[in-house]
Amino acid sequence: MEKSRRSFLKLVGISTLGLGASPVLDVFAASGGHDGKPKAGVSKRLNALTAKRWGMVIDTRKFESKEDLEPIIDACNKIHNIPKLENKRHEVMWIWEDEYKHVFTHREHEFIDERIKHLPFLVLCNHCENPACVRVCPTKATFKREDGIVLMDFHRCIGCRFCMAACPYGSRSFNFRDPRPFIKEENKEFPTRMKGVVEKCNFCAERLAVGKMPACVEASNGAIAFGDLEDPESEVRELLRSNYTIRRKPDLGAGPSVYYIV
């Protein structure tokens, strides 16, 4: 026990120094094993879904009206304890719908076909390859994981909202007040947030870790595909190969990982 205690303290010391993840694992690896004793450590679940770079393809041809999007948005809201605030200024949104001219601000033109003009589009965090929000965060509370997912560490966020100013897609929300009273049914499996932190879509990182696809993907009846953009055999790559797709504001160089088939 003494040994594990020592190594654990060492680990704690290192992690509080903020040296990041890998030294933590090194200490774990170094902490035992020579004498045949099991070593303390952390690992991923065997059934976790992994990818080199997660991406999403939304087939907007499969949607006709707001009613088609509702179950998708609701699934996310419910699972992530997203509050419904009446005050528009304090709204919290992870995935929502908006018109073509607002979603694809640079592609709008006056003669666009009627279907596209009135079709609601799903909007969410683009999990950019080169995310401006991560670049500006002063505490690394928002960070890009190796698998491309841009995440929020709610434990660390100081609520400076620099990331909200930096995001060119308006994907981030701030908890202007305690969200708890505005959550209809709480999902105990997922934490709520507290006032004063920023939040946004997390590509359902908590579900991928236990082998489940994102909630919106499951609720979409096949209209949303999710997979590894680096894997040529993946479903998303197949869709990107065989369809014309667009991304939001690609000219900014952020490299969004959400693609739309129109």
Binding site: K3, S4, R5, S15, V24, K44, R145, L208
Partner: peptide
């Protein structure tokens, strides 16, 4: 150990779960 160090354990856990997506803890036992 838990009595005196549970806060450190939780602090490390939350970091590795949120930031590294590691969800399994292999204890010293």
């Amino acid at each position: 150990f838990m009595k005196s160090e549970h806060m450190q354990v939780l602090d490390v856990w939350r970091d590795v779960v949120v930031r590294n997506a590691d969800r399994v803890y292999l204890s010293s036992s």
